[in-house]
Amino acid sequence: MIIVNGSQRRQHAALFEQLYRLRHDVFIKGRGWSLPSSGGKEIDQYDTDEAIYFIDVGDNGLIEASVRATPSATASLLADYFPHLIENGEPARSPTIYECTRYIVRPAVKSRNANREAKAKLLAGMLEWALSQRLSFIQTVIDAATLSSFVEMTPKTIPLGLAHPYGGGRKVPGGGECLAIRWPVRPDVIADIREYGGWQQSSFPQAFSSSEHRAIA
């Protein structure tokens, strides 16, 4: 798994080309979301130099999992479009909270186990990075139908409100219900997620111990 920040887009041109196309396939074609796209690529206003991309590339060079984290202080889908999802009065933006979006898990091997492993590796990895950055929470807006899988990963998942309809609600294609959740950035939460995926070790062996990785954000 690799971590690339938005300002390194040019050095990783081929990878980003693949990522934007994959996002188009998954979110626009697959889920029917109405997102801006051009030339078969999905790129939005949160793909800035400050964004951090967590990408797991398989042996064949294809992306198997990826997620984007943005500083909620300047780039928050929750604050911009879904503020009503927060029902406990907490502010959506904070310098110690990052927000993750465009979450993709597509392991080469299609099985429940492979899915679990890939999902856990990606999330545990992101939280490890967040811990190294001394962040307090990672927040995200999810489809309500996926909540139980996140709670299964760690029961410490914090809901920020109840589910609300989006895109016309559950009966409309491309619509559904969504809600906002947060994960506390703590070693016990990372341990929960690793255990869930059957991972004994870090998603980034030897990472975050060196100061080099501090420089990423």
Binding site: L147, S148, V151, E152, P155, P159, A163, H164
Partner: peptide
Amino acid sequence: SALELVGIYSHQ
């Protein structure tokens, strides 16, 4: 909507 959340967390 509330009971959906109550159910998912209670189960886990």
